[in-house]
Simulated assay, not measured.
Amino acid sequence: MYSSNQPDYQKPSAYSTPPPPSSAPPPYAQPPYAPEQYGGPSVGIPVMGSQPGPWSTGLCDCCDDVPNCCITCWCPCITFGQIAGIVDKGSTSCGVSGALYTLIAFVTGVPCVYSCCYRSKMRQQYTLHESPCADCCVHFCCETCALCQEYRELKNRGFDMSIGWEGNVQKQRREMAMAPMPQGGMTRDK
């Protein structure tokens, strides 16, 4: 196939030309698994390299979840504690975060200096737009609406907000364990 007169370094090889471009996305664009295909909640594996996307609900859609809206209006420390517990992936508890929020509210009168940091962290984890304006402005102008929106976003991503991070992890493991195994895989002939 090749003439013997060419030195080895000049012979064409399979590695000398790049493969033709394909329309398939790069491998990092897809999460390693999709929990919802196994019946489990999609608990927010962000897609690496993707552009920020929209929030699942608007800032003023508080009436979409009336019980949470009422709790957030009367006692925002509860909603904030639940959000912080999920966003921190269990490293801080709901009670500790809620108590710190309450302490900051009593001492400074502006708990948004603490809660806006969690909005930023949540946006980064789930690649969400910074909308309708900067996180600190959203929390300063509309603290209860911002907390309600963050709560709804986590709930829409499959989290059960009442059981915290550890409860959600255990729930997902149970659902993954109970998922049916695909049929017709590789078998060993006897």
Score class of each variant (00 low, 15 high):
Y101V: 04
S97D: 09
P41D: 04
V169S: 05
D88T: 15
D65S: 00
R123H: 03
P7H: 13
D64V: 06
C145S: 08
M122F: 08
S97H: 02
Y126R: 07
D65G: 02
Q30H: 10
T102V: 00
G49T: 03
Q183S: 10
Y28M: 09
C148F: 00
T102G: 04
L103N: 00
T102S: 09
V138G: 01
P46H: 06
Y151T: 01
Y2W: 14
D135F: 00
I86Q: 02
P31K: 03
P18A: 14
D189I: 13
V96A: 14
P26C: 14
P21F: 13
P41H: 11
V66Y: 08
I45Y: 06
M186I: 04
M176E: 07
P19D: 15
Q172E: 08
G184K: 06
Y9Q: 12
Y38W: 07
V47C: 01
A29L: 09
P31M: 02
Q183K: 12
P111C: 08
V110E: 11
L128I: 11
M161I: 04
C62G: 11
Y118A: 00
M161S: 06
T127I: 13
I83A: 01
S56W: 03
S56F: 04
S23N: 15
V43Q: 14
V96E: 14
Q51T: 15
Y126A: 01
H129M: 10
C70R: 11
S162L: 10
T144E: 05
G39P: 02
D65P: 01
P111I: 02
G81F: 03
Q125E: 07
G90I: 01
F80E: 03
A177L: 12
Y33Q: 06
D8I: 10
S3T: 09
A29Y: 11
P35N: 06
E36N: 07
C94L: 15
Y38V: 05
D160A: 06
L128Y: 06
C70A: 15
C116G: 00
A29N: 08
R119T: 05
T144Y: 07
F80T: 01
P67Q: 05
P12F: 02
M1T: 10
C142I: 04
R188F: 07
E143N: 14
P25E: 12
K171F: 10
P18I: 00
I163L: 04
T108F: 05
C60D: 15
W165H: 07
Q51I: 14
E36Y: 08
L128K: 01
P132C: 05
T79V: 10
I163P: 01
H139S: 11
L100E: 03
S120D: 09
D88H: 11
D135C: 06
A34I: 14
E166L: 12
N68V: 03
I71A: 13
A34M: 12
T92N: 11
M176I: 14
C73W: 11
Q172A: 12
S50E: 13
E150K: 04
G164N: 00
D8T: 10
C141K: 08
G39F: 10
K11L: 08
R174F: 09
K121Y: 00
M178E: 13
N168T: 04
D160W: 07
W74F: 15
P132E: 07
G158T: 01
K190T: 09
Y151I: 06
V43A: 12
C112Q: 04
S23K: 14
C136T: 01
Q6V: 12
N5H: 10
P35I: 08
E175G: 03
